[in-house]
Design a protein around this nucleic acid. Structure first.
Length: 700
RNA sequence: GGGUCCGUGGCGCAGACUGGACAGCGCGUUGGCCUUCUAAGUCAAUGGUCGAGGGUUCGAAUCCCUCCGGGCCCGCCA
């Protein structure tokens, strides 16, 4: 898309694309073309022109790169077509290495074609010698923290959170390939009001949700569930009853939804009574609508697990003031009261255990799990932020709360234009009247912590938090850390919607990542069994895991992050073209050829000049672009570019596969050249998939 | 209401930061291709006023302005 992030934010992402490459035949070809154009311009008397810009022609038959003469023609009042022919003619006089042909074409273009013999050999050498690291390069070792996922430990990771995880993980892989020293951080928001609410509900069940507790007793075996039922197509945002019984994060999600539901119903009822006595009919109707919504939620929840729901409901009904008790629990947790710590930490540990299981299954790991309580709360970090900001003169005290006047900071440091702010930035409440801190305050403390460990920070956080992330930067300026703010990026992405409604953790309405993965693997298994009945059961299971999970990862990584996604099973689990399985299949085909070829061909001669068909040329050229694609994806932080590249490469390979015989090629040296090409394709497909965190099976 | 992001064939997307040669791809629909390296493939046909209107430019899906439609945000939630 390219519009999602400002140029300022992109600069924050660094100019990785300009870093020196190890083996990069296409960059060499590009340099050679530029040199030819410059030399030709000099010969023809167009001296002192600025940097030569080359474009990729719209049609491969027009060459691999082209130079357009329109701008030059405009300046010199000459005919663009005539300039093009003069440049082409002059360029033909120069010595060339990777450039094969130069031609004038169209109304004013000079087209450059690779000389396939030299170029293919250069490419195949590079890929062969670099192998799995072809496409990645040495960077400056700059430390980058990528914070991603960071879902609240009060419900399982749903499909929206999964988008965050996959994007964050792909970004980490791509930045690492670009030579950054990447650390992946998960921020555990254990201090918030929501966690306290979940823990409060949990306390009504007498604790005990971890292994050995009453719910763990009904643990199901994963395998049983596999063949459980034909499909889960009718399950929509109602949770997964089986998972709720055996996976802690799912159970916590249920407890949290039940608690927030019970509290909301109770609060709304009280408010409606009060409004009625005050005769505010309009507002009464409004509140009744909200109540109706929550009553509907309550019956959904009750249907899932009546016993647990009723116990929570009873507990909350008999409480004098549940909202106050939740706030009290949070206050006690922030002051590290042992009982509160035991309760909340237990809940969080259980939830995180569930996250680890889910994320581990899709190959997502972290270098650091950062507890908000430890980094921002118990060590006084957030308190210190409040104090330092108070000393900055930009805060005021309102009704016992401490508030940061963001607008004043924006004015003082001239941030309006810098951050594209067109309206007033709302003030940020830093501290509640009961002395507890708010999320963004703790996030400021966390950010200071991160800057002690890295030069750059990328926060993968949904678009919903755009304003608080801006306020965070503003707060850094207020602290005199404006330069650090420049090295902090909010990498935002749009939400995943469900067809009828928005996902809501508080309402327990979400499609979990676990159920999507289960369903994907289930469908992949059916697919594999149908297509490859000759494979053994064990291998079919393995392949379906890789294929199903790859499909989900690809679906989430391949859509530009600033586009909202509406969840449908068919969309997230696709096995046809433009999917991970399509790419994996191309890889498996390439592997198959290599297996059948054996190893004897490697040392013998190869005729690279024979790789002259449009299929082979196209493949060679596309392979050679991989390093630049990686550099570009890293520069612009766009994993979807890798996805698209991999898809295009698979597509080009399929064309080659269907049109050009390899094992039955005529002539030993031609066969060898093609085998080199297939092997290079295999390696690059595998490297590209690796950047997306997708495994490349050798058979499917 | 204000801000912001998005709007490309029936559906889902790429192309936009960095303007260039007839706007690509998938799904769908219709019709072909497995005695040749895996048909999760491939070929052909079908289908688009690039939301609308202005402007800048030799040239605009791309840059600028206005408008229309949708997502998101505007809390002592996160």
């Amino acid at each position: 898309m390219g519009k999602g992030f400002s140029e300022r934010e992109r600069r924050g992402a660094d100019r990785i694309g300009r870093t020196a490459f190890m083996g990069n035949p296409f960059a060499e070809f590009r340099d050679e073309c530029a040199r030819l154009v410059k030399a030709a311009l000099d010969r023809e008397g167009f001296s002192g022109e600025e940097e030569v810009r080359l474009e990729v022609p719209s049609d491969p038959s027009l060459g691999e790169l082209s130079f357009s003469t329109f701008a030059l023609a405009k300046r010199t009042k000459a005919n663009p077509r005539a300039i093009a022919s003069r440049i082409a003619a002059a360029a033909k006089e120069e010595t060339k290495r990777l450039v094969g042909r130069v031609e004038a074409a169209g109304a004013g273009y000079v087209n450059f074609y690779v000389g396939i013999e030299a170029f293919a050999e250069a490419l195949i050498r590079s890929v062969g010698s670099e192998g799995a690291s072809f496409g990645s390069f040495q960077g400056n070792g700059e430390r980058v923290i990528v914070e991603h996922t960071s879902v609240n430990p009060i419900h399982p990771i749903h499909i929206g959170g999964a988008r965050n995880s996959v994007i964050g993980d792909c970004l980490s892989r791509i930045l690492r390939a670009a030579g950054k020293d990447v650390r992946r951080h998960f921020y555990i928001d254990d201090v918030g009001l929501q966690v306290s609410q979940a823990a409060y509900g949990l306390s009504m069940l007498g604790g005990g949700i971890t292994a050995g507790g009453e719910h763990a007793g009904r643990r199901l075996d994963h395998k049983d569930e596999y063949e459980d039922e034909e499909g889960m197509g009718d399950k929509r945002g109602t949770g997964d009853a089986a998972k709720e019984r055996h996976k802690g994060d799912h159970f916590i999600g249920f407890v949290y939804a039940s608690t927030s539901c019970a509290i909301n119903i109770r609060t709304l009822k009280a408010r409606i009574e009060r409004l009625k006595t005050e005769g505010k009919d309009e507002e009464v109707r409004e509140e009744i609508r909200k109540l109706d919504d929550w009553v509907a939620v309550s019956s959904e929840l009750r249907e899932r697990n009546a016993e647990t729901f009723d116990r929570i409901l009873d507990g909350i009904s008999s409480s004098e003031d549940p909202e106050r008790e939740v706030a009290e629990l949070l206050r006690r947790y922030e002051s590290k009261d042992p009982k509160a710590v035991g309760l909340i930490r237990g809940l969080c540990e259980t939830a995180i255990e569930g996250f680890r299981e889910t994320l581990g299954r899709v190959g997502i790991g972290f270098d650091s799990w950062d507890w908000e309580s430890e980094i921002a709360s118990w060590n006084g970090g957030a308190r210190e932020v409040v104090e330092r900001l108070s000393g900055s003169g930009f805060t005021r005290v309102e009704d016992g709360t401490v508030v940061l006047d963001c607008e004043a900071v924006v004015e003082r440091f001239g941030l309006r234009e810098k951050y594209g702010i067109k309206t007033d930035v709302p003030p940020l409440t830093l501290m509640r009247s009961d002395g507890t801190t708010l999320y963004t305050t703790r996030d400021i403390a966390y950010t200071l912590w991160k800057f002690q460990r890295a030069e750059k920070i990328v926060n993968v956080i949904s678009i919903e938090q755009k304003l608080p992330q801006l306020q965070l930067k503003i707060a850094l300026h207020a602290l005199g850390m404006g330069e650090d703010a420049e090295r902090l990026m909010h990498y935002s992405y749009e939400l995943v919607h469900l067809p009828g409604y928005k996902m809501s953790g508080r309402r327990g309405r979400y499609v979990t990542f676990d159920e999507v993965l289960d369903e994907a693997v289930h469908r992949a298994y059916r697919e594999v069994s149908e297509r490859s009945p000759h494979l053994g059961e064990e291998e079919r299971r393995k392949i379906s895991e890789v294929v199903g999970i790859g499909a989900v990862r690809y679906a989430l990584a391949s859509v530009a992050p600033q586009k909202p996604i509406t969840f449908t099973w068919d969309r997230v689990i696709n096995f046809e073209q433009n999917s991970a399985p399509f790419i994996q299949y191309a890889h498996a085909r390439a592997c198959n050829i290599m297996v059948k070829a054996g190893g004897g061909w490697k040392g013998s001669g190869a005729d690279y000049a024979a790789l002259s068909s449009r299929y082979e040329r196209g493949l060679v050229v596309l392979l050679s672009k991989f390093p630049e694609v990686v550099g570009e994806a890293a520069r612009s932080l766009r994993p979807e570019e890798i996805a698209e590249y991999a898809n295009e490469l698979a597509s080009k390979f399929n064309l080659f596969y269907d049109n050009i015989p390899v094992l039955k090629a005529e002539g030993e040296n031609v066969r060898n050249a093609r085998l080199h090409l297939v092997d290079s394709t295999r390696i690059v497909l595998s490297n590209a998939l690796a950047l997306l965190g997708v495994k490349a099976p050798e058979r499917m």
